[in-house]
Amino acid sequence: MNNNRELLVEVKNLQTYFFLDEGTVHAVDGADFDIHRGETLGVVGESGCGKSVTARSILNIVPKPGKTVGGEILYHRKVKGVVQTIDLTKMEPQSDEMRQIRGAEIAMVFQEPMTSLSPVHTIGNQITEAIRLHQGLDRAAARELAIEMLDLVGMPLPNRTIDEYAHQLSGGMRQRAMIAMALSCHPSLLIADEPTTALDVTTEAQILKLMRQLQDELGMAIMYITHNLGVIAQMTENVVVMYMGKVVEEADVDTIFYNPQHPYTQALLQSIPRLGQKTARRGAGQRRLTSIRGMVPDPYALPKGCPFHPRCSQMIAGQCDQIEPQMIEVAPGHKVRCLACAGA
């Protein structure tokens, strides 16, 4: 890996809470990670671990009653060759400056391409909206650029599809349209929130390939959120594993797969089925596919100490259920939040 990596976004001790009648949910509670210019960061974790809320915190569009209550998101913005650093958490969500960053410099692709596109507007209308807003082009020029973008993402017959509605397109084409929309203003960071979860595997493969290829062409960084470790292996350079709103392990992709330290990461990797691995046949040497025992804790009543300790196989009694572990660097660039790993 090259040494002159340039920081794009630094998330430091981010805390985003949801204030509900039933109590406060600490959706993101101390997330730390860096995104480097032009690289891909994978964010993995179970449902409800705070991946998507972290993404929305970066864009400053956390839905009510959620609110970023602490931490920093330092965005190193390149304006005419000069790098400015701004803290996105300090900005007003509706301010003009925030809106100029949103969609133009940091764009997002969502999980469900069907519901993420307006049912009553053509995809062209929605793509040109972003182009006209951020690039100040007139209608005709914006339309031309939108057709160009649709062509770039491999949309068949772009000058016809531009006037179609979401329901007239297939799932893969819808997601291509979403990507065209997100990339239309050449963002420096693309946040992809499970963009292929709703697609079938062949389409998924095409979309992943497309995103990789576009990243090479346009040079943007990607924050790729998923619960699919296979996609992580294929797409990313660095990985962040999240559990209950916290980053529990951070390393480059090879280290995560070949030398995972955190018991949660290890458990996640063991729960992936492999081709050729027999699970159902009885007999010696055969094993069932491992699942992580226990349930995700109640978000209103987080366990004391390490939030993973009730499900952890390496739990140290008297320690893990008392002391909240801190992030420690076990090797250069490899950080783990675990007491058991600290002793090792």
């Binding site: 997002m108 519901t115 993420s116 307006s118 909206e129």
Partner: peptide, 11 residues
């Protein structure tokens, strides 16, 4: 979600 998409565009 389409409302959020519009929001994420900076509208």
């Amino acid at each position: 979600p389409y409302v959020e998409t519009a929001r994420a565009k900076g509208v």
